[in-house]
């Protein structure tokens, strides 16, 4: 079996700060990490590899720094890593991102499972996985929390708000992982030594010329959606601190106010 994992490098949004004056993100000094759901996707691929005979290829579209995320994936146990990096890919929305990733997956070929994270913590759309599946014309199961195989089919438990669905899918299939799927491992010392060995050139880099792709469907120009403006969320709130000698007195004042406003 061949498994391909799509992995995005993202800024750690817990560390993101906002410049209140300009309303922009301060990215300087913010650590880059492997998108959390994608770590669950990779972990699942490695577990499947341990139980079945298969190889795990990780791919990422991004700037050259995204190699760091791929190195970490190799240290965790992936067999092969490919970075998709080209100016022509810059500014891609989910349509264009999925177009590039699908073209790379087609080039790799003869895959059985594509694993993605459900959602990236920066763009937050959860759209890239299903769009790749459509472009490859294969079935998908999103929000996967348990994955098994039986008689050449994938048996996947997917989360919904009202209870889980167990879905039986033909292969190849694209699955998107949520954090309930597993607990990602840490890289082993041996894995780290191999992945980060000086001079080791273990990541292939593909640009637009390496892919069979319609250049009108990628990058900023090929993206159907555009960011029109962005801003920092603002809230206007009464913001009154209730004072009093003790909790009891404050509680009484609060309930008085809520009652006056006919809220309770």
């Amino acid at each position: 079996m061949k498994i391909i994992v799509c992995l995005k490098q993202v800024p750690d949004t817990n560390e993101v700060r906002i410049n209140q004056e300009t309303g922009t993100l301060i990215r300087d000094g913010v650590p880059s990490i492997i998108n959390p759901d994608d770590k669950n996707a990779l972990e699942e691929a490695l577990r499947i590899k341990a139980a079945h005979d298969c190889t795990v290829t990780v791919i990422s579209m991004g700037p050259p720094q995204a190699k760091d995320a791929l190195k970490e994936a190799l240290a965790m146990g992936a067999d092969e890593a490919i970075l998709l990096s080209d100016r022509a890919f810059g500014g891609s929305d989910t349509w264009a991102t999925a177009t590039v990733l699908a073209a790379a997956i087609e080039k790799i070929g003869s895959y059985d499972i594509i694993l993605c994270g459900r959602q990236a913590i920066d763009g937050d759309t959860a759209q890239v996985g299903p769009e790749i599946a459509e472009f490859l014309n294969i079935p998908q199961v999103t929000y996967a929390k348990k994955i098994d195989f039986k008689d050449g089919k994938a048996i996947v438990t997917r989360y919904t708000e009202t209870g889980d669905y167990v879905i039986e899918s033909k292969m190849p299939v694209l699955l998107t992982a949520i954090k309930e799927l597993n607990v990602p491992r840490y890289p082993t010392v041996k894995g780290i030594l191999n992945a980060y060995a000086p001079g080791s050139d273990n990541i292939s880099v593909w640009g637009i010329d390496d892919l069979t792709i319609d250049a009108t469907q990628i990058g900023l120009k090929g993206s159907p959606t555009n960011v029109y403006k962005s801003f920092v969320p603002t809230k206007s709130k009464t913001n009154e601190m209730i004072d009093g000698l003790n909790g009891k007195e404050k509680a009484a004042k609060l309930i008085g106010k809520l009652s006056d406003l006919k809220l309770i």
């Binding site: 937050d124 959860a126 769009e131 472009f135 708000e161």
Partner: peptide
């Protein structure tokens, strides 16, 4: 969780953009 499953699949089938959430 269901709308976010079929929404992008629809947009990709139709050939248009999709704005999330």
């Amino acid at each position: 969780s269901i709308g976010r499953d079929i929404g992008p699949r629809l947009a990709a089938k139709i050939g248009t953009g999709l704005v999330a959430d």
